[in-house]
Design a protein around this nucleic acid. Structure first.
Lengths: 148, 148
DNA sequence: TATTGTTATACTCTATAACTATA
DNA sequence: TATAGTTATAGAGTATAACAATA
């Protein structure tokens, strides 16, 4: 295209850039043919281990009925299982099965590879800027959420 | 949380950071109560002007029937309109209405403000890193796509 | 015959309200 | 009575297949 054009550093343009990056990375994870919602929930179970259905719903910004259905679909697909919470008869613990963990790890690797592939094509200063910029933005988002 | 922990610069962690950023920015745009898909399509019409339904479907990585339905919903909401393409009797041009353009501009401002709010809380070197990193990543994605 | 768009159908994702069971 | 989870219902988002109209 027009790589001689000056970089537009306005918030508007930066925002479009972030969305392009996410779209690119997400499309790279194909194992299991999971949707965004399913992938995100399975990732959380993979990273954080078994947890209560309500806890999972809250963490994923989903309603309880939504999570009930999503877990049911994941269960039908053999990726997670429900177990009773022995400390609370009302509760249900959701955990990834061995197959689910395997899918999770593959998808994580696919996404990491996609981002690594992008990093490979950056100049060294740009690559360094990425390792500074992204964690810094994630940090202030966490601060926002903690403060709200 | 644990802000004393060292920044994890692995591709995996950077990827999670990007997803957090997108989630944060997307949640900030509330005008019109649009879904991600509706918002994205309306944004494109706002940025690029009227275009063919097929063209819009391709640009949004959607199927033609999907776009037909989405445009129908947007039309019902008064945000876009269909007009005949005079150069091709089969074609349909989709364009944002005045209300649609207004919603588009407000949402764009909301998202830009959200990102600007994050930038405000960064240190100066971090802010600079962001303006280098994001356009650079977007650039290599475009190069990828052009080369494929 | 190929392209543009729509209709038909089906499944995922999401939300709210109503319900059941346990605390 | 409050909380955890499910069921019921409905609408948005997505895809493929079949179709109509135009090129």
């Amino acid at each position: 295209m027009d790589s001689a054009a000056p970089a537009d550093t306005s918030a508007e343009h930066l925002m479009l850039a972030v969305e392009e990056i996410v779209r690119h990375v997400r499309r790279s994870a194909t194992t299991g043919g999971l949707s965004t919602a399913a992938s995100s929930a399975l990732s959380r179970l993979g990273r954080e281990g078994p947890q209560r259905l309500t806890e999972l719903a809250r963490a994923e910004n989903a309603s309880q009925p939504n999570m009930t259905q999503l877990v049911t679909r994941l269960e039908r697909a053999g990726l997670v299982r429900r177990t009773a919470d022995r400390t609370d008869g009302r509760g249900v613990l959701v955990e990834a099965t061995r197959v689910g963990l395997d899918v999770f790890r593959r998808r994580r690797a696919e996404r990491a590879d996609a981002l690594a592939g992008l990093l490979d094509e950056l100049t060294e200063p740009e690559r360094h800027a990425v390792t500074v910029a992204l964690p810094a933005l994630a940090r202030v988002i966490r601060d926002h959420q903690a403060g709200s």
